[in-house]
Each structure stands twice: as C-alpha cells, then as structure tokens.
Simulated assay, not measured.
Amino acid sequence: MARHGTPYSSFPARCQVRGCRASPQEWYEQGRTTFEVCHEHGLHLRAGEARSVDGDELLLGPDSAPALLGVRHLRSAAGPLLTLRLGRHGVCTQEITIRDSPGLRTALRVLLDHGESPGPDPSE
C-alpha cells in the first residue's frame, strides 16, 4: 500500500506496480508518497521509465499517462482548433484535435502552470 511520509519497516505481499505479483524488495518515492516495488520495477524506475500514479498503484511504460508535449493552434473553416501532442520521453504517440474556446484555453493554461511547460512544437 502507498505510504505517506516514512516507509514502514516491512514490505506488502506484492509489488505496487499494476499487474505485478512479485515480492517487493525496495522503496520508490513519487512526490510525498512511497511505493514498495520489486527489484525489476525498481530498475525500470531508476532508468527513467515513464510512470504515473493511480490510487495506490504505479503505472509504468505504456500503461502510464502520456505527457503533454506541445500545443498547436490552427485556424480552419470550422473555427479555431487546438492540436494536443501527447507522448513519452519527447516522442509523440498521439495527437488530439479539439475546437478552441476561451474556457478551454484557460483550463489548459492552468494545467500547464501546474506542470512542466511543453517545448516548442517542431512541426510548426
């Protein structure tokens, strides 16, 4: 189970990476939460594997939430559109195009202010 603060002295029955049934052997800290993970997943985490948190589980690699890599603004006959570039480790794996509005831009600005700002879009 995820721990807040100091890790407990004993490990739970299984690794806290979703779907893993191996015995935990080490702790991994994400923000203020500590997860107990198996040795193999500890190696992946130290190597920089993409990760996200869902409750008291870690999601790794393709199971993790993608990062926002960039936002492109386009004008079309249907009106202004935003294309969101999503991916991991700087590699775009998905583009989502949505109709632009002042409310959407405000929401995106709030999201970007609370996380890393995406770099410039090289496709522009």
Rank of each mutant, 00 (worst) to 15 (best):
L111Q: 05
V110N: 01
P102C: 14
H89W: 00
Q94F: 07
V91E: 01
L104C: 15
S117I: 03
G87D: 00
S117Y: 14
G90M: 10
L84C: 04
T106H: 11
L111K: 09
T106V: 04
P122F: 08
Q94M: 09
E95M: 07
I96A: 07
P122A: 14
G119W: 10
L82C: 10
I96W: 05
P122R: 13
T83V: 13
P122G: 10
E95P: 05
D113S: 15
S117T: 11
G115L: 08
G115N: 14
T106G: 03
L112T: 07
G119A: 15
P102K: 14
L84E: 03
I98A: 05
D100Y: 03
R99K: 14
R109H: 04
T83C: 07
L111R: 06
G87R: 01
D121Q: 09
R85Y: 02
L108W: 09
E95V: 06
V91R: 06
T93C: 10
V110D: 03
D113W: 05
V91M: 04
S101R: 15
V110W: 02
R88S: 12
H114D: 11
T97F: 00
V110K: 05
G87V: 04
I98W: 02
Q94I: 01
L84W: 08
I96Y: 03
P102M: 13
L82W: 05
P122K: 08
L104Y: 12
S117C: 11
G119F: 12
H114Y: 11
L82F: 12
L86A: 01
R105C: 08
A107K: 08
G90P: 03
V91Q: 05
R109P: 00
L108C: 11
P120S: 13
G87N: 02
T97I: 04
R99T: 13
T83M: 10
G115D: 07
P118D: 05
H89V: 00
G87E: 01
T106P: 00
V91S: 03
S117K: 13
L104M: 15
T106M: 06
H89S: 08
L104E: 10
P102W: 13
S123H: 11
T106Q: 12
G115T: 13
L82K: 09
P102V: 14
V91W: 03
T97S: 01
I96V: 14
S123D: 11
L112N: 05
L86M: 06
D113H: 15
I96P: 01
T83F: 01
R88C: 09
R109S: 07
V110R: 09
H114W: 12
L82V: 09
P122N: 08
L112D: 03
Q94C: 12
I98S: 01
I98Q: 02
L84V: 06
R88H: 13
H114A: 11
L84Q: 07
G119R: 13
D113C: 11
I98Y: 02
L104I: 15
L111Y: 02
G87W: 00
R109V: 03
G103W: 10
E95C: 09
I98F: 02
R109F: 00
G119Y: 10
G87H: 00
R99Y: 04
R85T: 00
V91C: 02
A107I: 03
S101G: 15
G119S: 12
V91G: 01
R99M: 10
R88D: 08
D100S: 14
L104S: 13
D100P: 07
S101V: 15
G87A: 01
L86F: 08
T83K: 07
Q94V: 08
Q94G: 12
G103M: 09
L84H: 06
